[in-house]
Design a binder for these strands. Structure first.
Lengths: 185, 185
DNA sequence: ACCTGAACACCGTTCAAGT
DNA sequence: ACCTGAACACCGTTCAAGT
């Protein structure tokens, strides 16, 4: 793995735990095995690094959601597995979705970073909307609204589970969403 | 207003916009009209100040929810007005719920602060559970699960609306929760 | 009791200097 | 091309000194 790749991965992990503000160049450099000043040879600023991390994050999300779709037997099963993507972040040392952390940090974020965060949300909602229609859960007229609602609610469930360091709470919340009718049974 | 009070208010406003990590003692002091070192006369550390802010935050939430209950004509109307409490944060310069920001910042927060954040969540969920039972939406056996789900989902809606600086999106999300059956019509 | 300037070790960032 | 030490202005925090 190249040094640039190693920086991207280590920065993503740190930002899912500590946010953009909490990302520390000296610690990040130590993780990668270089000095803080050397990071600037690969990324011109913290803002550029964060934007690159956020872009890679939604690119990976696209691949991950593609994988869920192709390995599921039908759209309903793909939908059912959607919350599992958020669960996996919690499984990795209780990390938060990068999009959620950066949404919280909205005020202090460079515009380029916010753009990538928006793309991440759009990628998720477009995938959900298609699955909702294909599975016959809602008509195409309502699919966007419902997709948005599911994305926001699952993000909220992950945030709450993180605050208690309790993956079982995440599962309980998803089950409640299903019982209440927000997610298909 | 005493200097301690002014510090608490200014610190809360900053933390709802920038988080615990983003709270800056020199700027905070300037807001209040003193120097950074003087803050330590009122609060022994940043952790203590944050814990005091978080405690005050849930105490205010109790008062706010009490007010919603007593001014509502019945439990169903009180429930219907619940998302409005989160909406008001967005109305104040797109600020996030302090509990949500601190949930994101979980890894870097002092334990005393996390305790107050948990109390904030419990206060909200207990209020919701009682209103859900009183309004006859769910039985007391399911009221806790549903209250948790509503709290998490409304938090997620606020987070997403903040990331777009779009209060209308918050309203759309709440409407979708109602249509889907998570929130009573 | 309340406030302050100066100092500390730490941050992101720059830059001249190295290989 | 890639890395580094030293420096900069900034952070939370301390403390001796002021009123």
């Amino acid at each position: 793995m190249s040094t640039s790749e190693a920086i991207l991965v280590a920065a993503r992990d740190s930002m899912q735990a500590n946010g953009f503000g909490g990302l520390n160049f000296r610690d990040l450099a130590a993780d990668v095995g270089i000095k803080a000043a050397s990071i600037y040879h690969h990324f011109p600023s913290k803002a550029d690094l964060a934007a690159a991390v956020a872009r890679r994050y939604w690119e990976d999300a696209v691949a991950r959601l593609d994988d869920v779709l192709t390995t599921a037997s039908d759209p309903a099963e793909a939908l059912h597995r959607y919350p599992g993507v958020f669960r996996q972040s919690l499984e990795r040392q209780n990390r938060l979705c990068l999009g959620s952390f950066m949404s919280a940090e909205y005020d202090g974020l460079p515009a380029a970073v916010i753009n990538e965060v928006h793309t991440f949300a759009e990628v998720n909602m477009a995938w959900l909307a298609k699955r909702l229609v294909d599975a016959g859960i809602v008509g195409s007229a309502e699919s966007e609204d419902r997709a948005r609602a599911i994305f926001a609610a699952v993000s909220g469930a992950q945030l709450m589970a993180r605050s208690r360091s309790d993956i079982a709470l995440f599962d309980t919340l998803i089950a409640s969403y299903r019982e209440a009718g927000l997610l298909p049974g």
